[in-house]
Design a binder for these strands. Sequence first.
DNA 1: GTGAAAGCGCTAACAA
DNA 2: TTGTTAGCGCTTTCAC
Lengths: 348, 348
Amino acid sequence: MKLKELADKLGLSQTTVSRALNGYPEVREETRMRVQKAATTYNYRPNTRAMGLATGRSMAIGHVIPVYSKNEVVNPVFGEFIAGASQTYSANGYELLLTVADAQNEEDTYRKLVAKGAVDGVIVHSPERNDSRVAMLRDIGLPFVIHGRVSEIDLEYSWIDFNNRRAFQQATQLLLDLGHEKIALINGIETLNFAWLRRQGYTHALEQAGIALDPSLMSSAEMTEGHGYSSASAMLKKPDAPTAFLVSSYMIALGVRRAISHAGLQMGRDVSVIIHDDELSFFQNNDPVPQFTATRSSVREAGAKAAQMLLNIIDDPSIAPVSELLEAHLTIGSSTGPLKRLKAANQN
Amino acid sequence: MKLKELADKLGLSQTTVSRALNGYPEVREETRMRVQKAATTYNYRPNTRAMGLATGRSMAIGHVIPVYSKNEVVNPVFGEFIAGASQTYSANGYELLLTVADAQNEEDTYRKLVAKGAVDGVIVHSPERNDSRVAMLRDIGLPFVIHGRVSEIDLEYSWIDFNNRRAFQQATQLLLDLGHEKIALINGIETLNFAWLRRQGYTHALEQAGIALDPSLMSSAEMTEGHGYSSASAMLKKPDAPTAFLVSSYMIALGVRRAISHAGLQMGRDVSVIIHDDELSFFQNNDPVPQFTATRSSVREAGAKAAQMLLNIIDDPSIAPVSELLEAHLTIGSSTGPLKRLKAANQN
DNA sequence: GTGAAAGCGCTAACAA
DNA sequence: TTGTTAGCGCTTTCAC
């Protein structure tokens, strides 16, 4: 069913039908009712392409998610975030265009999207510490919201992020409270802002406690099981091996667990491990240390919020940038030993 | 840069430029070169909306992924699959339209996509045992490929799937070989075809071994940690508790682990666990039993293949349906005890 | 309050 | 081999 057909059925012009459907005020209320009813009856849906052509907007939002290599699994956080965003889009008549781009030529991807007129705005995932995309997107005037943020940059822009720095500062503090002094950090790629902030939280807590940083206890690479395994293995072979691990994702954690058991050690008895993951709750009650996570649902909500921010910007490009920093939740397991201290740690 | 501008710069008509760019044979080779060079220079990209309007095609493929509830995490397998598909699309000038639909009204989602003229074809994720979408999509004539397949249906259609039945049959056999007799299955929702096939593999192996099926050892629900925990807990409380678990996803597995340790048992010592996941490799070398998984890269490849199938169908809707059944890999850990038997199990 | 007509950027007959 | 022209389905001036 196309507009012309619907108009013919109603004995009206395309113009009037279009106006009635798009909420223009000059349509008689009675006419509007008739039109709307007919539209429902015939299940009329305006062709997005045609609408886009006519209005100069595409009614689509682009999500560009980076893939670093074939080794790294697509971060499940993106799935949750996008699921949240998707709802906002549907509710507002927008479509979601997904592009999986090699992290190398992401800028190109955005340029292409704009040149093709494919999107009215984009969500930027996985920003780097000093991400050139911010300047670029402002240059070309494409509305955007960042999932995450860019610490080392002065420009204004809209973003939504979890407080990674605080999360890792607290997690480290928690391990310190438990009496650990050799605490390892197995992190993601630290040119990525989230990983960089996590590291800052970690080092900050150690410095506060007057513990010297040991570079051999910090490792940074793609968030793969292999990275977790090789890093943890190497660290455990040292004479002054770490007694605790702070791990930046469940994928890495799989490797760390493997390394620990390969070394003849047992998690929760010989070694403490805290796994951070934005999405997943890991309850491992045989560990004396609880897991430190943001809950899954909050990621989905963050996606919905980011999408709404973006639609607002598209609606009115002159509004001031907004941002939101979400706190990660500290999930406490059921082991009673360290619980008190954990609570204290959680309060700062 | 739009076609008209480019044509003006070149002193040619829009038609000729369009033809040159789209590989029509009647263009003089020299002209084509000139046009192509100019297109690159000015970074010309045809507007997808306009192209779509003119050709009646949208140059976009829809992926509809279901969300069953707020409790269930978006299956990371979709992320990998889509990452693979995405590459195929980019290479062929297609865009990827992602829709996250409530599992209830998925049919509506497809109808809407077609009515809006938003897509030229769709990939159907997460098919049910007797999925009505197959008949519907054939009815409305929308090209599609199923990620998975629909066992209880007679129609012809294209699909790509992993051999879930075989995978679980082998996994169960493996546990039987290890001497287990009380083997529990903690599965996804069994109206979904993949879960149903997994269960078939499980029951088949037990029946072959002459072991009576025990309904209290089979549980089926959303693939959440909660499901794993409550199911495994209940089973472990029975007087004839299971000595082994066959688990349908790593999310469920998190809960199962928790239940095991809550029960005062130790994985790998008191209980054997096999986790199946299409995507993730779980190496837990303190378990006496290796993990049973398909490798991640194969999921991505499957996505790329499915996408190619779909583009072929769109190109020539009259071609016969094609399908591909991929084998899941048996990943063997480094524990040497059962290794030999595993190999044998792997060969059937 | 409604309609006629032009045009969004492209492709595809049909002419030349 | 190239150009002219008429749409694709919608929105939006402008006129009534």
